[in-house]
Design a protein around this nucleic acid. Structure first.
Lengths: 225, 225
DNA sequence: TTAATACTTCAGTTAATACTTAACAATGGT
DNA sequence: ACCATTGTTAAGTATTAACTGAAGTATTAA
């Protein structure tokens, strides 16, 4: 079966599939479930879409236990997606719609944790203040960090007991730097949302920083956002 | 109206629209009727599709009498389409169609100038012989270069008077190197076609190098193609 | 062994949008 | 002035393929 130009475009043309490709631009491999969450759709549906992308040789899958990790099959796919993203019109660059690209780049959720410039800034500060330390591809918690997050109101014992990795670096496509993910990253985002430091935008991964959040983030992290 | 990434992909995802974009890759402007024939559809239908592409700022229209000429609104559109074309699978690389991909990679038009291996080779030689020099993202013409192109039969005064940029580097998806674009790049291609050094292939962007062209290109540029 | 998680497959439904039919506007040749 | 050519717009239809629900496989945890 020969894949033609028309096949490629119609494949990329679907909103769910384009969201998947957009998400994968950070170069990481994502599980089907993660991608389903990113694209805001069901497991069955993402499975169908992913199989199409794999069949067209845009993505490859790797099975690891019961997980299936999807990533770009070759770098040309990333080139093409970037070239397409480059077409996004900045003509009438008035903020009319809910989300515009600069918001997304500034502060957004990546799966279930904080990303964008804000996510990166906070993470870098946590490293600088030795709350967390990078050790062979995962962040380990220092004693100082453990106290910090407890004071912050996160149940560290509960997080430690979870099977999920506590904290690991997640590469940001907009910043090309790392931000904190894992259960701690998720707990951090969760706490900030519940304290009304942050609010989710409708139908978007962009996050709004409330004025309360702005001052509190400075108090806690010494980061100006 | 703000065009987002998803809009772009769904726009390009339609088979009729992707055929139109593919057709326009040769850089020429086509009338609505011509495009309807290329895409094998009705006049009403192509009109609808074209209006969507124009609205998204992928194409521009120019009215001339009762004809309306459509072309790419900017070069980035051509880049993106080329990047997408590059994703076409080479798994079962049997030569079935008129054009095969290696021809396209060797010598083709990109928008309105010469691309592929030949385009890159000529451009690199022009730089090496100091006919053109790269200065902050555009090629500037040297005195030597100006004489060279005049001798070649290109009306440099006319080119200089145009509003379009004279010469700038255009990144090649197949070679991952630069070739010369802009009005000078276009004039160069034009001259070679008119002198029968090169011929256009039917229904393709691939370019045939005539035996005359092969020797003349060596005489002028000292490049073996 | 049982229960839960991760993911896929299939059959039926739904919804988005491309396409058709029809009517109209503008240009150009005779 | 007339009519053919070129193209657009609008309303209704039709078709494609995305999505849902149900069921099933494989893996891991308890």
């Amino acid at each position: 079966m020969d894949i033609q130009f028309g096949n490629i475009t119609s494949l990329i043309g679907d909103p769910i599939r384009s969201t998947v490709l957009w998400t994968l631009l950070d170069g990481r491999a994502y599980t089907a479930t993660e991608l389903a969450i990113c694209a805001d759709t069901s497991a069955q549906n993402i499975s169908m879409h992913l199989s199409k992308l794999v069949q067209a040789d845009l993505l490859t899958v790797e099975s690891q236990g019961r997980h299936r990790y999807y990533r770009f099959s070759r770098q040309e796919v990333a080139y093409a997606i970037e070239a397409l993203a480059n077409l996004v019109s900045h003509k009438d660059d008035v903020k009319v719609n809910t989300t515009d690209i600069s918001d997304i780049k500034y502060c957004r959720t990546c799966y279930d944790h904080l990303a964008g410039k804000v996510g990166v800034l906070i993470t870098e500060k946590l490293v600088l203040q030795k709350m967390i330390e990078l050790q062979n591809k995962t962040y380990t918690l220092t004693a100082k960090g453990n106290k910090f997050f407890k004071d912050f109101g996160i149940d560290m014992n509960e997080l430690q007991s979870k099977r999920r990795v506590l904290a690991k670096p997640c590469l940001d496509w907009s910043e090309r730097k790392y931000h904190i993910s894992g259960s701690l990253g998720a707990a951090l985002l969760n706490k900030m949302l519940h304290s009304d430091w942050l609010r989710r935008k409708k139908n978007s991964r962009a996050i709004i920083i409330t004025s309360k959040g702005q001052s509190e983030i400075y108090n806690r992290f010494k980061v100006n956002v």
